[in-house]
Design a protein around this nucleic acid. Structure first.
Lengths: 217, 217
DNA sequence: GCGGCGCCGTACCGTACGTTACGGTTCGGC
DNA sequence: GCCGAACCGTAACGTACGGTACGGCGCCGC
């Protein structure tokens, strides 16, 4: 059973068939929450429980592989730092904000975060750490270069990029994530998300934008 | 069994003995998370399982009563609106912010929010709704009169008190709540909390403070 | 063509836990 | 002092589910 886990842990990602299984888990996770059973997974994925245990070791291994599989599907568009001006910086920030709002309000993200929270409450802290790493911290790693480029271009002012990012995070997410996790029906339309992203960006610029002469806002 | 639930649902709160039981559940919830068992509760509270079922109906009823019991323990200090100036408004906001940070970073709050999240993921949405109502929304109801008093006193500017509150919420909480829920070890010292509260308050005033002449910030 | 391997479907096992039942004890009212 | 109600401690029941074992089948290399 140990080499089964190893089989997934290191080396190249899951095979095509395994990806199908993990996608089935993902769908089931959205529908059923963390009370999905191994039997239900096997039925949905049209595979045997024996295969599940052979491939993923145990239930936790299956969930861990699922979280990592979903995380690996999110690709990071690189940011070009050349020709940065206030317009392009604003556009970048707004794009980050709306992307992020779309992610955290998606059924998949909510289900995955719920699983992470549940596991963080028990002994198995792994899943919570993974979700955190692939969510909140990954966003920070993506955004901080943008912020620093903005600072170098004289468009932003802040001491600590981490603190600046956390402010941006708070302005964007506000109470959305906790409300969704706690089951609040919070219908976010595309227009609403874009509007929120623009508002958060303007607020962030008001706090950390370079003060060249009288404030533009 | 139905009248057992009713026994707790309506009318006056739990008896002293029942409060002892609920406090035991609370402690157990902090230690064990949502995988506490009825047997463990009975043992910890030195009561019989029969009594638990008689008083609370079933496991969900016990958890619901616990969440409401904890919520009822938080008392709301009223806000005096007379003689409001920038100093007292700032102090009020900072106090709200530091209180809130202290609450959401407490073991009890984390455990309760975890329970709410897991229940929101299953069919039983009740607990999530209760936590949300007694947490996020209760804070909003407490803070909005302060904001509106500040606006009436000419100290704040905003169109929608709800939106202004959400901004304040985001500036205060930032990524703290989600990180704690996902198991991140986030040591918040008293000094750190007060500093964060002051920072969030200043940022909020920078965004929504009345612009009397050139900006003070 | 055939032997072995990987996988499917399913039956099975052990256990943990929610829920119920019951005997024994305390306590308030008469 | 006695009765009944409430409650404690514990044993017992039923079930759901994680994990395992096994028979059958298609596929790939030889």
């Amino acid at each position: 059973m140990l080499q089964a886990v190893t089989e997934m842990m290191e080396g190249e990602g899951p095979t095509a068939r395994q990806q199908d299984v993990l996608d089935a888990v993902l769908r089931l996770l959205v529908e059923e929450g963390d009370r999905l059973t191994m039997t239900a997974v096997a039925r949905r994925a049209s595979c045997s429980k024996e295969t599940l245990y052979k491939w993923f070791g145990d239930r936790d291994g299956l969930l861990t592989a699922t979280v990592q599989w979903q995380a690996s599907k999110v690709r990071v568009p690189p940011v070009d730092r050349k020709g940065l001006d206030l317009v392009s910086l604003t556009a970048s920030l707004e794009r980050f904000a709306s992307d992020w709002l779309r992610v955290i309000s998606s059924d998949t993200s909510i289900a995955l975060n719920r699983v992470g929270v549940v596991h963080a409450g028990s002994d198995k802290r792994d899943l919570g750490a993974i979700v955190l790493e692939r969510g909140r911290f990954a966003l920070g790693r993506r955004l901080k270069p943008v912020l620093e480029a903005g600072r170098e271009a004289g468009l932003l002012e802040f001491d600590d990029a981490e603190e600046a990012f956390r402010t941006f995070f708070g302005l964007v997410a506000r109470d959305v994530q906790i409300r969704l996790l706690l089951g609040d029906r919070l219908e976010l339309t595309a227009a609403g998300i874009d509007g929120d992203a623009a508002r958060a960006t303007q607020q962030f610029l008001a706090l950390h934008g370079a003060k060249t002469g009288p404030r533009a806002l």
